[in-house]
Design a protein around this nucleic acid. Structure first.
Lengths: 280, 280
DNA sequence: GGCAGCGATACCGCAGGGGTATCGATCCCG
DNA sequence: CGGGATCGATACCCCTGCGGTATCGCTGCC
């Protein structure tokens, strides 16, 4: 299945084989074996191009989930063994620089519980928390709707906030105390930066492409772009940047999420602390 | 992992090996290999008994999920291939004899959609739908809260109904037009039948053990037991049985559930039909 | 103390997965 | 329109790793 995912993503046997650290012929054979075993044609291949069939794209999705589940089983078992012998701990994945205040309060509240264990923070890039939770590198995560997908997780809503547009401090837009989405590009005279997707591609648009927050704020400070972010990051803005509320930006909801069959008391404790902090 | 799950369930290498159709020594070695690979002790074994460690029980849970995911990937791919070449179809798992009317209306409503495909019904025993959905034998299922677990699925609530107690038609209880849970055993003079759990064990209690509905209703008709069931089964009761509403029984909610990353248009259509039928 | 039950170890055989060399088809370019 | 380049499939070989049989060693129990 790992082999198939690699081929399906590359759509090229040679490159997939390279990525898997093996030669191309055994990979070809492995895929045909898989096709025979499943009784399904997974790839349409001519000697020039490879394309996914309907069944192939189903398998791509399902196989990713299955591989994540296997990976998660290994990771969680390893951590359970560590926790049993050494110091117990729970891994919380969160987006670096988001919901800072909420996170601090959450950690404080949880630490005050009688049976609290150490919380290891896993600071992730944009949208990485989801993967961390799916493949077992994290036990629990703070996700941000509507950006992250909570499909397949148990969740609890924590807070909802509106968004602000960030521009250089001297910028004319800072005179206004609110704007609308439609007005931003024209009023600011700045394109909205484009975040990199998880697969390495970028959305279409005029703005510059950014990979992380350092890049983003640098570009904004240089007057090359602006960005729309949740209100709570205002408290951590650089001095040379200013935020203006956006009236009609989609509200951002922070949720705490965990794998549905999690039996860990530590995860339950964190969730309890979080809901006590943010009674819905 | 299949090996480990077998051993963890049997807690006996010999029986597990037999179940897996292999000899005991290679199984022993496979488990120690797994322990070395994960760097975790999974089983405490003396020459007389085998017990799960903390890490072992984590792996048992995770490995079951992972194996289900792999199985689901294979099943769904096979069905996708069939659907592409032959007649497309979607598999709906439902508990035999439950929500009969709702099911009929759902099928009718969906069939009226322009792009409806064939719906294959998978009639399951008590609580089996969940497994069918998890391991890919079904694409979508009707589940009944609070009996089934929807953990890890996307769901949509369809209807909530109260429960009734079923007794033989001539029984004295039928004179009353309602009862309370606490009164049932004493008023009816009948113990409540005990359903078999998925793992083959039975809950504690005085009532007889039953495995399916034929058994159950036979026992009730013979005056050996009674049972509490959702109101909607009243329409399908045998003539020799009568139902009396139970005031304080937990309400039963029927939900339609599907795997969270399902991209199938047929599943979406069924869900749409269901929600149109039962606007929440 | 002997025996029965059970998991671990030792040793063997083979199937299956991976490697190299090469083929055959398709597209591109002059 | 033909030759080379690209890419997946096939042929053949090797070796690792998994499973089987035989046996050991430990532990309770009668």
């Amino acid at each position: 299945m790992r082999y198939f995912v690699a081929v399906a993503e590359e759509l090229h046997f040679g490159r997939a084989a390279q990525r898997l650290g093996m030669a191309q012929p055994p990979l070809s054979r492995a895929i045909s074996r898989l096709e025979r075993r499943l009784g399904a044609k997974l790839l349409d291949r001519t000697s020039r191009a490879v394309a996914l069939t309907e069944a192939g794209s189903v398998l791509l999705r399902e196989a990713r989930a299955a591989l994540d589940a296997v990976e998660a089983a290994e990771q969680r078992t390893r951590r359970a063994a560590l926790a049993a012998t050494g110091r117990p701990g729970v891994v919380l994945a969160t987006k670096a620089g988001s919901s800072g205040e909420l996170l601090a309060k959450l950690l404080d509240t949880y630490a005050a519980e009688p049976d609290a264990v150490a919380v290891d923070l896993l600071l992730c890039g944009v949208g990485e928390q989801e993967r961390m939770l799916r493949d077992g590198r994290a036990d629990v995560a703070l996700l941000h709707l509507p950006f992250d997908s909570t499909a397949g997780f148990d969740t609890e809503e924590l807070q909802t906030e509106s968004q602000v547009v960030v521009v250089p401090s001297g910028h004319g837009l800072t005179a206004r105390d609110q704007v609308r989405m439609a007005d931003i590009s024209e009023l600011a005279g700045l394109p909205v930066a484009r975040w990199r997707h998880r697969d390495g591609t970028y959305p279409d648009g005029p703005g510059p492409e950014v990979r992380d927050q350092a890049q983003l704020y640098q570009l904004v400070a240089l007057g090359r772009a602006c960005c729309v972010v949740p209100e709570s990051v205002r408290t951590q803005l650089r001095e040379d940047l200013t935020a203006v509320p956006v009236l009609d930006a989609p509200p951002v909801t922070t949720v705490i999420a965990w794998p549905p069959h999690s039996r860990s008391g530590a995860v339950a404790g964190l969730v309890r602390a979080a809901t006590r902090l943010c009674p819905s």
